[in-house]
């Protein structure tokens, strides 16, 4: 079982990203669950959402305390202590950012945040891409696509199916182009070796 936590600001589509990711996983034949951090925040506030993915059915409805991956929709959030709380540094961080991964590492270190060497960090200019395709600064779909590309477990086609459940017509077309472009902006299967730490807890 893997746990993913998505960080964003109210209005950027963090919860949608979580649902989209879970849907894509579901389309690929995995079991998945997505839920927001149930907050009272309004537009602009830092918020988060969660995704659980496993090969076997599971029944828990608790929070993800130590996520394997972080998807960060706004790089300004990267350097808040809450963002990294419980994060297993053996996992990966995907951020919507124009910065290089190394710059981010450096900055994290400067702030004394928990890092380790060879920590997987990837960036993609998601806002730029979404603006060019959708005309709106909604980075969530780009990041989901990039995440799937990086991890390689779930085929991009599943994301396209998931998108087709939500959108139609021109919006769908734009989104499909967008996710295809996003998929190649990151190194495919770079994070293929994923931890299997929770698998044993899954129900038989």
């Amino acid at each position: 079982m893997i746990g993913i936590r998505i960080h964003g600001r109210g209005g950027q589509g963090s919860v949608s990203a979580a649902y989209l990711l879970a849907l894509a996983a579901f389309e690929s034949g995995l079991y998945a669950q997505a839920f927001p951090s149930f907050g009272a925040e309004r537009r602009g506030a830092p918020i988060s959402a969660f995704v659980r993915i496993d090969k076997l059915p599971f029944a828990r409805h608790c929070q993800i305390l130590s996520p394997d991956f972080l998807i960060v929709l706004d790089d300004s959030l990267l350097f808040l202590p809450e963002t990294l709380r419980g994060f297993d540094p053996s996992g990966g961080i995907l951020a919507n950012s124009g910065k290089q991964a190394s710059d981010i590492m450096e900055k994290l270190a400067q702030r004394g945040l928990s890092i380790r060497e060879n920590m997987k960090i990837a960036t993609v200019k998601a806002t730029e891409i979404s603006l060019s395709h959708l005309g709106k600064p909604i980075p969530n779909t780009v990041l989901v696509s990039a995440f799937l590309s990086l991890t390689g477990t779930i085929p991009g086609a599943c994301l396209e199916k998931a998108l087709a459940r939500r959108f139609s017509g021109k919006t769908l077309e734009a989104n499909l182009t967008l996710v295809r472009e996003a998929a190649v902006k990151v190194e495919k299967n770079a994070w293929a070796a994923l931890p299997e730490k929770d698998r044993s807890q899954a129900r038989a």
């Binding site: 879970a22 079991y31 998945a32 839920f35 409805h61």
Partner: peptide
């Protein structure tokens, strides 16, 4: 139905 825990959770 537990609020949020179920109502806002996407699952199969």
């Amino acid at each position: 139905v537990d609020g949020y825990t179920l109502t806002h959770t996407l699952e199969p």
